[in-house]
């Protein structure tokens, strides 16, 4: 286990370093001079030069990078070029929104997806299965920005059931907070729910026809116990894998969803930063996303061994 953790930590550090380099270089390769964007009205060469010096943009790239890494290691992500606020304080307001949105979306998607998947497998060849399959097809094929727009149109604008945009922090007013975030979370979760449903269904069909399910029936267990304790527990490993693999998609989906519902989260912050060539913000966002990705995947791997005792984490790649 210790060896596994060590290998894992080393791999993670390397991944983080690589993604930092890629973004650092990539951001600077974008067309457009940030100094120009910052200069505003006064575009005299002297003014631009002063700006470059102020932000360290006149240094060679490796030097800029070294300075950046040093500062980040101390928790200093720099100052937003656009607003002048420290990036770290922007993150503390934006991050909770996105984390809440994603966690809620994953929870809703898992609940709906696993529920519908189990139902489709148990009620094979009956209307319930067709219904679940049709829903999954819709969830997979309809882009969620469009679903989001429809939801706003019908559930917010026409009926006023949900607010069309805006956000209230969780700690300020939990009820109002949920009211604002449930609809975006459902929309963000639809695609994931559909994928989870399909995977759950096929995994359940496999385990329902397995020998150990036959044994469970032969023991005289109730159908509910056979399905949940025996078949579903063995299918969950698939669900966890799918959720793990879909996280990247979920993060990019969150960016779009936040934009549509006007949620002041990470995604909105990223898009604004990209349009404004706000280097420090973009860099911080990517670094954090990569970190989140690595941490979550680590937990997914640990979860495997909790669900399936045959999988024991070792230092060797399986």
């Amino acid at each position: 286990m210790a060896r596994y953790l060590l290998t894992r930590a080393w791999q993670s550090a390397l991944t983080l370093l690589l993604s930092t380099i890629v973004v650092f270089v990539g951001v600077r390769a974008l067309p457009g001079d940030p100094a120009l964007a910052l200069a505003g009205e006064d575009r005299s060469p002297e003014a631009l030069e002063a700006i470059r010096r102020h932000y360290g943009l006149d240094q060679p790239l490796p030097v800029q990078f070294a300075q950046y890494v040093e500062r980040v290691a101390q928790g200093d992500f720099g100052v937003s070029i656009r607003t002048g606020t420290p990036v770290s304080s922007m993150l503390t307001t934006a991050l909770p929104v996105t984390v809440e949105l994603s966690v809620l979306a994953i929870a809703i998607a898992s609940l709906l997806g696993v529920g519908a998947g189990v139902l489709a497998a148990v009620r094979r060849g009956r209307p319930a299965e067709w219904f679940a399959n049709a829903l999954a097809l819709i969830g997979l094929s309809v882009p969620h920005f469009w679903l989001g727009l429809l939801a706003i149109l019908y559930l917010s604008v026409a009926t006023g059931l949900f607010p069309a945009s805006g956000f209230v922090p969780l700690l300020e007013d939990p009820v109002d907070n949920l009211h604002h975030i449930v609809l975006p979370a459902v929309i963000l979760g639809t695609g994931l729910a559909a994928i989870i449903m399909r995977q759950t269904r096929s995994a359940m069909l496999d385990s329902l026809s397995s020998d150990y399910v036959r044994t469970a029936k032969a023991k005289g267990l109730r159908p509910r116990a056979v399905v949940t304790r025996h078949a579903l527990r063995n299918s969950l490993i698939v669900v966890v894998t799918v959720v793990g693999l879909q996280l990247g998609g979920l993060i990019s989906g969150a960016v779009v969803t936040e934009q549509i519902f006007g949620l002041p989260g990470f995604g909105k912050m990223t898009i604004d930063a990209v349009f404004q060539r706000d280097y420090p913000v973009i860099q911080a966002v990517v670094l954090l996303t990569a970190t989140a990705y690595i941490v979550i995947n680590f937990f997914v791997d640990l979860l495997y061994s909790v669900i399936d005792p045959r999988i024991r984490v070792t230092g060797n790649p399986a």
Binding site: D211, R214, A218
Partner: peptide
């Protein structure tokens, strides 16, 4: 269901796959 496991019990051929792995 009341009969299965209590009055009539089964043993199957493949003890590996017939037991629940988790």
């Amino acid at each position: 269901r009341r009969v299965r496991g209590r009055e009539i019990a089964y043993i199957f051929q493949e003890p590996m796959t017939s037991l629940n792995p988790v």
